[in-house]
Nucleic acid binder design. Structure first.
Lengths: 341, 341
DNA sequence: TTGTACGCGTTATCAA
DNA sequence: TTGATAACGCGTACAA
């Protein structure tokens, strides 16, 4: 067992309270005693026990960021900004990955209790959460990239995201405007759960419909797993190329996947964009530094992160919940070509 | 304040002890009482308070993985394996990012106290830790990708890594064997601290020396920040190209950086490998899916992760510390060309 | 300016 | 099979 505050007190020849005051800068302590105590603390390498601290439920200045799949490069962009901004406000940010099998809100509730959190940011996930659970979450909570779904009242949380359906529509519309008609779509989404990815699927379908392009299942590549890496994009693209000799363009639901797809195209000896046009989604660096740089629907990650922090702290000071939807920008970098000129 | 075990006990008409037994499956409880208690627990959404639990320092089956820069794709490869293997052994894995400004061992000590950890894996960082701190770390600890440095006795910790110096040597030797003489090197490392990156630098220098190639500072691109992204590789490569008209090959200290460098080459209208050969380090997917796929020194991430977990659990069962150094493999994917044929 | 004593929610010991 | 009760380490009224 480690050394405790009690022993530090004894060794310093003072009471527990005084040591506690020194540790927390609460209450007055004479410079001499403070110095004495500090020296004993560092001599014995005393470290306060956080469990005992939290048990007394003193308000700790911490905010948690719960991320579903923290490895996602797009999330990383936002995380970096959030980190800075939260620190600037004098709060500690606890970043924690949430496993696929875990429920974000459950984790939030547990962590709130354990660490006396003042606020929670949830990044990623799907659009369906149970309203009952929200009732048990006693601190302000903001969702990034998704909403909590139709069942949860908007007054119970905030959200910052984009309109995935509309943005996907925009991507496909762009390809159509370039004269493409045989447009492949690579995506992946769990069945029956609304996620950003399933919305992007809808956007693809609506664009086809609106421009009277017949829907062809052979143009859709998916496998109902939850893969979304380079590998996945590569395999799906190989499939599409095999099945559709007349394919001229592909929309991938994420940049990572678009890169895998691009590799499949290039390694087949085809060219981008001369033979196949490719557009991705998210706006991560990987796509920019690919060669050729890939067109994409770029989410305003920086702006979204800023707003997220702002709204959360506003809520923490008693402000109302907000639901912000940003617009993405279509970045044309040359991986899509016009068929009509 | 949330509902407590005391209230659950009262509501169930039993004592606290009995509730505790149900929660932890410790000690005997009649099926009827158990059922009753369970129903009360779920009705009131009772969640045990971890702080109070840990305060009693019951052995919790958890192991922590502390990562310096968790976004690193190479680390992600290992993390995924570690996650699985630790779970397989019935332990909970707590993954936590360590900020640049934090000391891994400090975090380890604090977390051990807070969460009753049984073991610690530290990933990334540098080669210099203070021996005194290790004395205060009371649980088995293993370093991955680095050692704790010369000052810490080998009996105090384990490590799994590669010989960065020798592997970097191998990369440069390969380029030399292909006939290259004007070989650029892109890297970044804090001054005066031994890190895997600074060792790679040494490997580069030794290879030149051994093959009697004059050292030319103009061939080194670095900026003494701690950048290591696409951007960094891009900028450094631009510099190299500008300063060295006769450059034929480049060794980048990380694949990410190699990709940035590749982009600089390709976007300058030069070809890989015809005009410039490029080789990276790490063996991440990003380099494989780049076009052209980039040659690299590939670390056996999977194997390293497996060994890491194995050694840690061995230590936890009283086994001795181990220091394993793996060999990397040189992956030739076509981004380096021979000048001699 | 300093110290004493209580309680936070839980587990472990021991007696019933 | 159960239940009191003493810790665990700390913060904080309250008293000095």
């Amino acid at each position: 067992m480690e050394i405790t505050i009690k022993e530090i007190a004894k060794l310093s020849g003072v009471g527990i309270t005084t040591v506690s005051r020194v540790l927390n800068n609460s209450g007055p302590v004479s410079p001499k005693t403070r110095e004495k105590i500090m020296s004993v603390i560092s001599e014995y390498n005393y470290i306060p026990n956080n469990n005992a601290r939290n048990l007394k439920s003193t308000q700790s200045n911490s905010v948690a960021l719960l991320v579903k799949s923290i490895a996602n490069p797009f999330f990383q962009k936002m995380i970096n900004v959030i980190k800075q901004k939260v620190a600037l406000r004098g709060y500690q940010l606890i970043i924690q990955n949430v496993e696929d099998t875990e429920n974000e809100v459950d984790v939030a509730i547990q962590e709130t209790q354990d660490r006396n959190l003042q606020g929670i940011i949830i990044m990623g996930g799907s659009f369906n959460y149970s309203p009952e659970k929200f009732k048990r979450l006693k601190v302000p909570c903001i969702f990034m990239t998704v909403s909590a779904g139709a069942d949860v009242p908007l007054e119970n949380y905030s959200s910052v995201r984009i309109d995935d359906e509309a943005e996907a529509f925009k991507a496909v519309e762009y390809l159509i405007s370039l004269g493409h008609r045989r447009i492949g779509f690579i995506y992946n989404a769990p069945i029956n759960i609304m996620t950003p990815n399933s919305l992007r699927h809808k956007g693809y379908l609506r664009a086809l419909q609106q421009y009277n392009i017949p829907y062809d299942p052979a143009l859709i590549a998916t496998d109902f797993s939850s893969l979304s890496g380079f590998d996945f994009g590569f395999k799906m693209m190989k499939q599409l190329l095999l099945k559709n000799k007349d394919l001229t363009a592909v929309f991938a639901f994420a940049d990572i996947v678009a890169i895998g797809a691009a590799k499949a195209v290039l390694s087949s000896g085809l060219r981008i964009p001369e033979d196949i046009s490719i557009i991705g989604f998210d706006g991560i660096e990987e796509a920019e530094f690919y060669h050729p740089s890939l067109d994409t629907i770029s989410q305003p990650a920086h702006q979204m992160a800023l707003s997220g922090v702002e709204v959360l702290f506003d809520m923490m000071q008693g402000g109302k919940t907000q639901h912000i939807i940003y617009e993405s920008s279509l970045l044309k970098r040359g991986s899509c070509i016009s068929l009509t000129k």
